[in-house]
Design a protein around this nucleic acid. Sequence first.
DNA 1: GTTCTTCCCTAACAAGTGTTTGGTAGGTTA
DNA 2: TAACCTACCAAACACTTGTTAGGGAAGAAC
Lengths: 205, 205
Amino acid sequence: MLVPTKKKPQVTAAPARRRELLDTAAEVFAEQGYNATTVRKIADHAGMLAGSLYYHFDSKESMLEEILRTFLDELWDGYDTVLGAELGPRETLAALVTESFREIDRHRAAVAIYQKESKQLVAQERFAFLAESQLRFEKAWLSTLERGVTDRVFRTDLDIRLAYRFVRDTVWVAASWYRPGGQHSPEEIARQYLSMVLDGIAVRE
Amino acid sequence: MLVPTKKKPQVTAAPARRRELLDTAAEVFAEQGYNATTVRKIADHAGMLAGSLYYHFDSKESMLEEILRTFLDELWDGYDTVLGAELGPRETLAALVTESFREIDRHRAAVAIYQKESKQLVAQERFAFLAESQLRFEKAWLSTLERGVTDRVFRTDLDIRLAYRFVRDTVWVAASWYRPGGQHSPEEIARQYLSMVLDGIAVRE
DNA sequence: GTTCTTCCCTAACAAGTGTTTGGTAGGTTA
DNA sequence: TAACCTACCAAACACTTGTTAGGGAAGAAC
């Protein structure tokens, strides 16, 4: 019982308030950019003062890390379910795209942050998990495309790495304009995107 | 001859050194993000001290403005030539995509900056020209797609605004991974992208 | 040879940055 | 009632930021 090791809320299981603050922080990060966002702005949006944030979090950077980790954890939950179902390549691609749009719907802010900042963040060892995730991501998509090519489901005359970047980007950039509760549901957007990616926008002869 | 009105180089026609500095600044902006880039970093890359930059430029912000203005001017030179040729919708789309990849090849850094920062910049009146350009851009692409639909060249069952964002994003996001002097020429990338956008990645029955 | 111009340096400035320290109101526990 | 914990505030900290003022070296102009 010596040295009570002042239990800071950072280490305990995340309470509701903590999640609340992370949500508002993610919103501001996504809107203004991480570097342009000051802790005072976050505190403003949360109705408190800058210093008070440090009761809940170690640093501004740790807030960013937790936002991205939470998002990626949930993303891979969905992806692993899809990949574990062992569907055909075309169905796997469709399921991955649909799942991605669902994640955009649920984690719009986090996705936007990821898109904007991940490239610079991976350089820091603290955010090395971004690189790992990116690698798994690439493997999942590339193998699906390759399977589709060998199965003669996808065209064989295309550069597969270009196709990968093509599909990947078309999906995730949507986070920059997507607004939850808009005209289209995530599933509807996924359906139209898939239609364009798979069959193209030109009329068939 | 009273008051020699100290001619600052900012107002005169751009000398070579000025363009040189803007190029290095654009490179750093693109790599680290505008807000994360300090004038000292720019000066480092240019082999001089921070204060010396202010002999050439009014401010950090004016450097950013000139980088984006130069890029957009050249972009619209190319676009206007394409649009003025009065080609069919499919050919216009192909020409616009190809022209876009050429611009990415020539202004990689500026395009990357535009992609990352424009959304937050348009709020400032100084960067209102970004909004104008964006509007012209949207008109050009949307009208091309609409013409294609009425001409039965493009599919009629697609949400045309979704298709617009689809094509727009697929093209410009390429700036985030494209490296000049790589395996593929801009024209080759454009050809493959067009093939995917027009005909899709699925095998035709 | 003197003057002028170009281009950079040195040194500082004020404002804004993330973060820390000590305190405190209010509820919960003993 | 007393001790304690939670969640915040108030005020400052060291540092970085964009920017400015004055000066000086090297060459061009006269």
